Amino acid sequence: MPSDAALQTTHTPRWRSLSAEQRDGLLCLSLEARPLITLRVHTYGTPVVQVEYVCSQRPYQAQWAACYWLLSQHATCQTLTWQLHEVPTQALASGLLVSGEQSGQYLCERALFWQLPQPWLGDAQTAVYPQQMRITAGKRHPLRAPKPRGEVYRRFDARLGSWVSLRTLDIEHDLERFNRWQNEPRVEAFWQEGGSLAQHREYLAKLEADPHTLTLIGCFDDQPFAYFEAYWAKEDRIAPFYQADDYDRGIHMLVGEQQHRGPHKVASWLCALVHYLFLDDPRTQRVVAEPRADNARMIGYMQDQCFHCDKEFDFPHKRAALMILGRERFFDRCALI
């Protein structure tokens, strides 16, 4: 690339333009057209980052943006090595950077970076809800936090060039869409929940009143395309079929819009959904699912995203495959950019 060539402009995860320009061997990042940070990056093996300039009013944001940019541009890079003259106190406290073996050396680890809850969760609740145990219908489980409302997750998917977001379902706003999706023959064959508007209103109202299930709408560029149910496994019907931990989350998935089907779209929204659930509560160590055992396509998509099939088992209404993805595996093999 020529020394004065402009790099692409992309988006930080919540509504801002981050642009980069490379000149004279330097990488210059600007946020909303204001200079943010200038770096010299050596890419022999592990990228080594040296700071030439940083905005004094927002050094942490500058460091975060540089890590985001470099990890997004180098999808296989697991570690960025920073050389800094001053101790990056806020970055160390948050986990954005960790101390290296040498003085003045700090590391950004991809597996840690993607566990930072902000800015992906936006204004959604990010504090850890206190634990107190309850017994519901004979099942002992933690008291669950109140359900969020509105948008809970947003990220710019650099591979698709699109925003992927999750918001909570609003019955009045989403009922007709949900009804149309559930009555699609392709969807009805697996969900077996076809029915009238009245039946679906009752179905969704029951889930809205259930503290163990969160109903979500998935969007690409703010256009709804999918319905998801995220549930706490300990209180769910799946609990007797495996050793469920207190904070395991489970998922049910439905893609309603035909144009958003396909493996490249699944890779985007499934990563986003799992990412949200792991960020929503850092005590969540596993995300599980129980698709029909004969749904080979969905099982294959999930295996592509690092889920493994633990076993097959029988629900009263279907033969199911128990799919499991652990937190450590997800972040260690993180494909987010």
Rank of each mutant, 00 (worst) to 15 (best):
P2A: 10
A6I: 00
A6W: 12
Q8G: 13
H11C: 00
R14C: 00
R14V: 05
W15I: 06
S17A: 13
L18H: 03
A20R: 13
Q22K: 13
Q22C: 13
G25K: 04
G25M: 01
G25P: 05
L27S: 06
A33D: 15
I37E: 06
I37R: 00
T38Q: 14
H42Y: 14
H42P: 07
H42S: 15
Y44P: 05
E52C: 08
S56K: 14
S56G: 09
A62S: 12
A62Y: 05
W64K: 11
A66D: 02
C67H: 07
L70E: 07
Q73T: 09
C77I: 02
Q78I: 05
W82E: 10
Q83G: 06
G104F: 00
G104D: 10
Y106Q: 06
C108A: 15
F113D: 05
Q115D: 06
L121N: 11
A127R: 12
V128I: 15
Y129L: 11
Y129E: 08
M133D: 01
I135S: 13
K139L: 15
K139N: 05
K139V: 14
R140L: 12
P142V: 12
L143A: 14
R144Q: 14
R144F: 04
R149G: 04
G150R: 07
R154T: 09
F156M: 07
A158C: 08
S165V: 03
D170L: 07
F178A: 14
R180A: 15
N183Q: 10
E184S: 15
P185F: 02
V187R: 05
F190W: 15
Q192M: 11
Q192K: 14
A198P: 10
Q199P: 04
H200Q: 15
R201V: 05
E202V: 12
L204G: 11
A205E: 13
A205M: 10
A209Q: 00
A209D: 08
T213A: 10
L214K: 09
L214C: 09
L214V: 05
F220W: 04
D222C: 01
D222Y: 01
Q223M: 10
F225E: 10
A233D: 13
F241D: 02
Q243F: 08
Q243K: 01
D245I: 00
G250K: 12
G250L: 12
I251F: 01
I251R: 00
I251K: 01
E257C: 00
E257A: 04
C271H: 01
A272Y: 07
V274S: 00
L277Q: 06
D280S: 15
P282K: 04
Q285H: 11
A289H: 02
A293Q: 07
I299Q: 06
Q303I: 08
C306S: 12
D310F: 02
K311F: 08
E312K: 12
F313D: 05
P316T: 08
H317R: 14
K318I: 11
E328K: 13
R329P: 04
F331H: 11
A335F: 05
L336E: 06
